[in-house]
Design a protein around this nucleic acid. Sequence first.
DNA 1: TATGAATGAGTGTTCATTCAT
DNA 2: TATGAATGAACACTCATTCAT
Lengths: 231, 231, 231, 231
Amino acid sequence: MTDKPTKVARPPAARALAKGAASQTRDEAPASNRATRAAERRAAIVDAAMEEFIARGFAATRLDDIAKRAGVAKGTIYLHFNDKESMFEELVRTVIVPVVTRLTTLPPPTGSVRDLVEAFASNFLKEVIGTRRGDLVRLIVAEGPRFPSVADFYYREVVSRGMAGMRALIELGIARGEIREKDLARYPQILIAPAMIAVIWQSLFARHAPLDAQDMLRVHLDLIFGERSTT
Amino acid sequence: MTDKPTKVARPPAARALAKGAASQTRDEAPASNRATRAAERRAAIVDAAMEEFIARGFAATRLDDIAKRAGVAKGTIYLHFNDKESMFEELVRTVIVPVVTRLTTLPPPTGSVRDLVEAFASNFLKEVIGTRRGDLVRLIVAEGPRFPSVADFYYREVVSRGMAGMRALIELGIARGEIREKDLARYPQILIAPAMIAVIWQSLFARHAPLDAQDMLRVHLDLIFGERSTT
Amino acid sequence: MTDKPTKVARPPAARALAKGAASQTRDEAPASNRATRAAERRAAIVDAAMEEFIARGFAATRLDDIAKRAGVAKGTIYLHFNDKESMFEELVRTVIVPVVTRLTTLPPPTGSVRDLVEAFASNFLKEVIGTRRGDLVRLIVAEGPRFPSVADFYYREVVSRGMAGMRALIELGIARGEIREKDLARYPQILIAPAMIAVIWQSLFARHAPLDAQDMLRVHLDLIFGERSTT
Amino acid sequence: MTDKPTKVARPPAARALAKGAASQTRDEAPASNRATRAAERRAAIVDAAMEEFIARGFAATRLDDIAKRAGVAKGTIYLHFNDKESMFEELVRTVIVPVVTRLTTLPPPTGSVRDLVEAFASNFLKEVIGTRRGDLVRLIVAEGPRFPSVADFYYREVVSRGMAGMRALIELGIARGEIREKDLARYPQILIAPAMIAVIWQSLFARHAPLDAQDMLRVHLDLIFGERSTT
DNA sequence: TATGAATGAGTGTTCATTCAT
DNA sequence: TATGAATGAACACTCATTCAT
């Protein structure tokens, strides 16, 4: 462990093998050109970096670990990103976009507003709480002040859109008489708040007191829509 | 490449400013003995460290900067704390305790439960949101996973107590007929959620969309207690 | 452990106790004036420093530890010594002198030379090997090259005198016919060598293979004087 | 106050000199591949470290100086060694092993035992006394107590083997009637002692009184084997 | 005289970044 | 393109020395 064994330079053949089965098999597929391979590597780096940043935060994450986890050499990271900071920023963008896309593809507004909101909340619970995406939210809360561009991006792409969507739903609910509290439309945050709390709770206090997010959200919706007549 | 993260300016002349109220008295009161001076220095270090940790997070904070800000030599820090980690942990404890003490000294339960909750919320808004204490909450959210002892301490001293207090109030509200939703007692988090969101919102999105926390909390309480007859 | 408890200043009484029994009794003697007390402190520092330097070597020894062991404050050391280096140098001198004095007060040359040498060797074994003084020899071997003044002093006060004494004895032995090897007078080191080896052996290899220094010296003397007719 | 310890000069231009024979070849042989270069660097670090440790002892040696002397960056040291301590330990091992190998390749036992021992001693004088290897012995004596693993290794690899070899020779000498003192086989240390003394003498007292080690060893052997009939 | 809190230069170690291969 | 050895600036922590009390 202490002194490195003189690492005999790997012969080129061995190196090709070492790239792993996945990319190896692509040599047969005509679509697997250089660009594709590069994209795959980039994806591997993004995944690994996400994992590490979430686990340790920006400052405490080492590029060495990201490289190891991604299965690439340290230098390779610099072929895809300018430096650690811009990697972090691009990363968050890269990961957030599909989330946004998914969430904004709302189902058509059939049925009651409550059903809609409930479906949305249920989806949120499954997709976010206790998952990597939930950790991403915490990561943004943690690093936001030091990465205004990240906070800005997150606000623009996620928060403001989500707020707009919620507001629309709330107004629909008010119009249909499902929601009494008219001022709620001014603060869609209230609708989201318990979900956010649940996200944070999971990563900080789950081991002290597990939280039934599903049930909590139901109670919260009861507050807003009035208790369901549980016929 | 894009916009760099905000490198919170490290004012070289911060020393004079940083002396703060506590150590300032030293100059006035020549009677201060050695023990007092030591306590003042410790306080100065705690203040400076809080500032730095909040601004940059644990890993990115440099002891050099803390020392400079506190107006002491680097070595002096080690007369008060074992190392960076334990400094961080004790710090959080030190800062949290008085907050807890203050918040738990609740006014006697005269008047309606809503009035009580409102008084409490109003106090919370003034004392926490947009203040150093609010930032502390964000800091704990950010660093909690890497400092389980901090998360534990925070849960034990603040969260569980706060939850117990809220639960008692909710149950009182239910008993008195002020609160309809009986299940709310199981999730005092719902009562707190918007306040937490407000705290986080301030440090991340305030410049994009300022949030009237006071008003938002009122709306939230309306949801729980029913709208006030605004005569 | 982390933050130092404000160490309540030791009451003078406690401090006196800390000096240990020896100096304590002096308080009764009228001779114990300021100068005496200072001398005692100096002696305590010298002892403590010796202990620490032997255990860790010059560079790795901390004045803090010396002060603690001597029961004085760190600053006090600087009332007696200029700095760490000169302390080390004076120290070795201070400790060596009485050893020299003792060893040079040889008993009158009655009886055979072998008896004399044997008496001397036996004394050396008791007084040096496995004792603090033996460690001092190793310390000088260890630090000599970095402290020429120490090596010089040791050579002048101990080595050259010892060599002279040995040479005289050897010449006497040759004159009396007890020693055959005439050239031995040119190398008194040979007479001492096994004793030196024993000293070093004790501190390095004793736990691997204990060495019966007494017996080894006897064998060595047999080589020089011829085997004793063990009648 | 008195004379300062010899601060062995740290030549800033040592770099060029320090490249030494090993790394020098690099410039000549462009064929050297990465593995070779790594080995050369490691060798350069080992050489430089040896030099520094011998000159200053473990604690007082700075990695900065080692790096400078080896002509590498400080960080490079950590590509080869875990930390200062393990560097020291491995270093001693690395340097000792070839010495052992060399010494154990004894010439075939032709001629008298005395001739054998004399050949061995002569070899020892040339290869050890007044050389880097001799200094290494002193270094081990100096640091052994703080590096038990080093002392252990030295005992196992050098001392115990050397003792076994010497004992065999002595027994052969006794069997052939060349050595009278039968008990000598129990203390091969006696055979070695003057050589050890010579090693130490060179580094401490050579400038006060030069020692003709060759001649001293001859006298010592005369004691053991009886005076040679100097025909 | 004696104290020990305070200092700050110095040192071991880490890690983002570069670049020869 | 990809690699990973090499770099060196940066940082946590130590400790000889000073000095107000």
